[in-house]
Amino acid sequence: MPPVGKIRKRSKVVIVKSPNVISPSGKVHRTLLSDMVRSGLCKLTSESRAEDAIRHFFSPQDQVGMKVNCLAGKMASTHPQVALICADLLRDSGIKGKNLVIWDRSERELKEVGFPLNFNGGEFRCFGTDSKGVGYSRNLINHMNIGSLLSRVVDEYTDVQLNLPVLKDHNLSGVTCSLKNFFGAIHNPNKYHDYGCDPFIADLNTLPQIRNQQKLVICDALRVQYNGGPSYHPQWAEYFGGIIISDDPVAVDFVGYQIIDKIRAEHNLPDLEKAGRKPKHIFTSADEKHNLGKAKLEQIDLIEIVL
């Protein structure tokens, strides 16, 4: 993410796909997924080694928060393998395991999706904002349209974020992906569901703790819920077999939006705009006031790799 006030000219987004990375039963091919993450990062940074690529975003002294989205259960959440592969890579790049925190709102939801809870370190730590000793910061944020308490994972336990969202249709905001994932960092996300969550999602992402901390997005698009989201409906879950990587969360969400609309068209569903839920927050995030990234195809270098 460019620091506040700095305007980026273009953004780069890499989609890596492999038809075999996830089976119809939901089994993830871990080696293949790891290759996808590594080659996508190399392409994004023009490095030949993934360990060097990830150093563009994180340095060995960083305390890295890895924000997953596991609210919708096992079948419509960030796959644990995505986070575990990223943790391996970050460790290989020189970051200590105890400084890697895989996190979301609650222990219950993390556990349900299969994340191994671990507060004490080792290869990584993994806990919820509701875990013992964590909770929300006592300082009430009063920022643009947001009045919330921020998870202490963001405020105190980590200093940079690797955003690991899952790409899905959303009944209110149209799309849930990188930007909306940080609704999981505040205590009262349900208060920001009006008007398609707009401008609330964009406003939240301009909060310095989020805007300045978020360094990279690796979006899980292995199985895309293209209708009926954010909950899981097998009849509308596409085995897309992809990951989307960028340091621009708006561009990731914009590309994700195009992917969802394309899948919807293939299944004879109206596009999200016609369905009455155009993801306005993506465009608000790109406007001059928010300046969080790019939401126009002509401003995005989109690279697709198939493994």
């Binding site: 509701d130 013992k132 964590v134 909770g135 929300y136 910061s137």
Partner: peptide, 14 residues
């Protein structure tokens, strides 16, 4: 106490 009970359920600090 403002913020206090918003800690995690088993928070040491609480």
């Amino acid at each position: 106490l403002p913020g206090e009970s918003l800690l995690g359920p088993n928070a040491d600090a609480s």
